[in-house]
Structure formats: structure tokens, C-alpha cells
Design a protein around this nucleic acid. Structure first.
Lengths: 192, 192
DNA sequence: CGATTCTTTGAAAACAGTCAATCTGTGTGG
DNA sequence: CCACACAGATTGACTGTTTTCAAAGAATCG
């Protein structure tokens, strides 16, 4: 399933054969079973993961054992604990597979190396970061300004595909509400 | 007050005199009175602003006329509507001065030019973006997992300085609660 | 000082969370 | 292939938190 990553790269930047091969040689493809961890809180996150198939999520677990979903990543998304990646400190997030999945892994070292050697790759990464930051700001705005029902509608609008493949409980934890509240919100939307 | 910006740059990257002078020649210093707009929703955001003195905020106004604060920026922070900057579309955010302030402005065009000509500057910008993104993720986590009182304590811990200089109502709108709730939360914290 | 804006406080209403029970669908092992 | 167990989703009753509205009390600015 490396082809998915290949295709993704080709759609974003122009690479000569040599560069493509080089990146491929630094990459690692890994299959993940549903529920399998890619990263556990406490460990240091040492790789960037590109999702070529399936769906992963990152989340933290609070002192009451409740999970709070920070992010979902389906095909063609990147995921990792950027805090841990950047600082080298233990991750506070868990990352696991929502479905049977497949990822392309690049170690921090190799990732940075590629950024350094291939400016186009570096630009791509920074564009991604830019977009991710914008999306993040939008999510914050939604979080501080919308009611439960509006949050869910906003989510549906933004990620109609995710709503279909991700268990409701996880969506609730992403939106910052209890599973029961989300259930009632959906009910409310249906009956009108 | 350009010196503040100069000092900031010197602390982050190494520039030769020529480069420093060049950047200065592309910069614009502007004073802002309290409440004065730097950007109004509907206009296109065409400049990056570095705060050399005072405090600005970005916020959106919802259909009920309620303000929701996306970000505060005090000395040595950057602010702008990145969405509008990137796409060239009209801004959805307002940016105005919380106190009498002073900013160093760089037009998108010049900013991009500097990024292009001075790799160190580009790296600095990307590091900033990285940090901003991380902070943003942390804020989201706080938003979806904490109660009103915990959110305020979290804010105090993170930005003890801001709590002192920014009106409570604005902090409430940043935290996603009503001014009344914040007032009661503070009361609760005092009395223990 | 007087006017305006910001903050506090109180009471009632709306909203979301919790707990417990039931329902649904899925997958497993007999 | 069925029966059962299990996890996820729904529902109801209740509790607790947050919002809303209104009024009074500070603080700030001209």
C-alpha cells in the first residue's frame, strides 16, 4: 500500500525518480489491527505516520479514565504527537487504530533529513502545517461558540465521511460532549 | 518602537546588516489606539502584524452579536487572519487593540519575499507555526475536557500575565463561557 | 464629578452530564 | 447455525452546571 503515499506525494510535489526511491527507502509500511496502538502515552513519539488505509485517532485519557479525542486521521492524513516529536519528551497522547489500517512511517530523523534535502518536501510540510493550524483555529471557534447540536452539525458539514465510519462515542469525545448527549442530539436532528 | 522587533529577530536568527536593513525597509510601524481596528471582518487581511507594544485580539461576532475571542497577542507575538492571508478571501475575524498598541506590519507580498530570500527567516516562521499549532491542540484539549473552573485555572497557569491586563469579559469569550460564569468561577477560586 | 462600561450578584430557566436499564447489532464459540 | 456474550447506542429520571435576564455595584474615562 505504499502506492497511496506515492500517489499523494506525486499530487503535491514534483520528485525525480531518484528522490522518490530515496524517500521510499526511508519509509516503513506497517499494518495496524483495529484497536492496536501506534503510540502510547508515556512513550516518546519518534515517527510521523501517513495513513494509507483505514483510520487512526489520537486522544488523551484524563484522571477519571475518560478519553478525549484530539484528532482523527483517515487516508491521506498525517498523524503523530507533534509535541513529543518536537521536544523529544514523552507523549501525552495515545494513537490507535479505529479500523484495521495501514500507515507509512517516517522516523523524525529521516523526516527532517528529507525536509532538509528536498525543499519542495519541506514546503509541502509547511503548507500542511498551515492548513492544519487554520483548521485548528476553526475548531476552537466552533468549540467556544456553538451548542452541542450546532457542534455536531458543524462536524457533519465538515467531515460528512467521518461521521459514517467512526463510532459515535468517539465523535462525542472529539466534540467534547458525553455519548448520551450526542445520541440525543442526533435524535433531535432526525425528528425534524 | 521598531527596536522591539529588531531585538526579537536578533534573538531568533542571525542576520547580516544588509538583511536587517532590508527587512526594516519593508516594514511599517503603526500605532493603534485602544479599540482601534487593525482588520475588520469582510476585508481581506493583507499583512502580518508583529506586536511591539500593547495587546491585540482577534475575534468573530456571531449572529446574536456575541463576540468570540480566537486569540490574544501581546508583545513579541504575531497576529493576522491566516485564513484570509493564505486564500485572499475576506476575513471572518476582526482584529483590534485591547490597549494602546504598536505593531510592525509586513505585507503578505513582502513577508513571502523575505521568507524566500532569507531561509533562516522562513525556518523561524515555520517553527513559530509549529509552536502555534501545538498550543492550539492543547487549547482544544482543554476545551473539550475541562469544566469552567478548570478552564480558567488552566488559562491562569498558561498565561498568568494576560489574566492581569485583559478585561474579564474578553477572557470569558476566549474560554467559551459567559462573563457571569467567569465572575462566579473567580469568586469560587478566591474563597478557598 | 457624571457617564459609560465592566463586573458582580441573585433567581429562574435551559442545557448537558450522570447513572442505570434497555435495546441493538456484531462476532464468537459451542 | 444458533445461542450467547459483549460492546455500542438509546432512553428515562435525576442531578449539576452554565446561561440568561435583570438589577445593583465598581471601576474607568473624559
Amino acid at each position: 500500500m505504499y502506492e497511496v503515499f506515492q500517489k499523494y506525494m506525486d499530487s503535491k510535489i514534483q520528485l525525480c525518480q531518484e528522490q522518490s526511491d530515496w524517500i521510499r527507502s526511508l519509509s516503513l509500511v506497517r499494518k495496524l489491527r483495529k484497536h492496536q496502538f501506534l503510540l502510547q502515552a508515556g512513550d516518546v513519539c519518534k515517527q510521523h505516520a501517513f495513513v494509507s488505509k483505514g483510520c487512526l485517532r489520537s486522544y488523551s485519557v484524563d484522571s477519571d479514565g475518560v478519553e478525549h479525542t484530539v484528532k482523527f486521521a483517515v487516508e491521506n492524513w498525517w498523524i503523530g504527537d507533534r509535541n513529543s516529536l518536537m521536544t523529544g519528551e514523552p507523549a501525552m497522547l495515545n494513537i490507535d487504530a479505529v479500523e484495521d489500517s495501514e500507515v507509512v512511517l517516517l522516523s523524525t530523523k529521516n523526516f527532517d533529513l528529507i525536509c532538509q534535502k528536498i525543499p519542495a518536501f519541506n514546503d509541502m510540510v509547511n503548507n500542511l502545517l498551515q492548513s492544519a493550524y487554520n483548521a485548528s483555529q476553526n475548531r476552537i471557534l466552533a468549540n467556544i461558540s456553538l451548542s452541542a447540536i450546532e457542534k455536531y452539525e458543524h462536524f457533519l458539514q465538515r467531515y460528512p465521511d467521518l461521521a459514517l465510519r467512526i463510532p459515535q462515542g468517539m465523535i462525542a469525545s472529539y466534540l467534547g460532549m458525553s455519548p448520551e448527549t450526542l445520541s440525543r442530539v442526533r435524535n433531535q436532528i432526525m425528528s425534524r
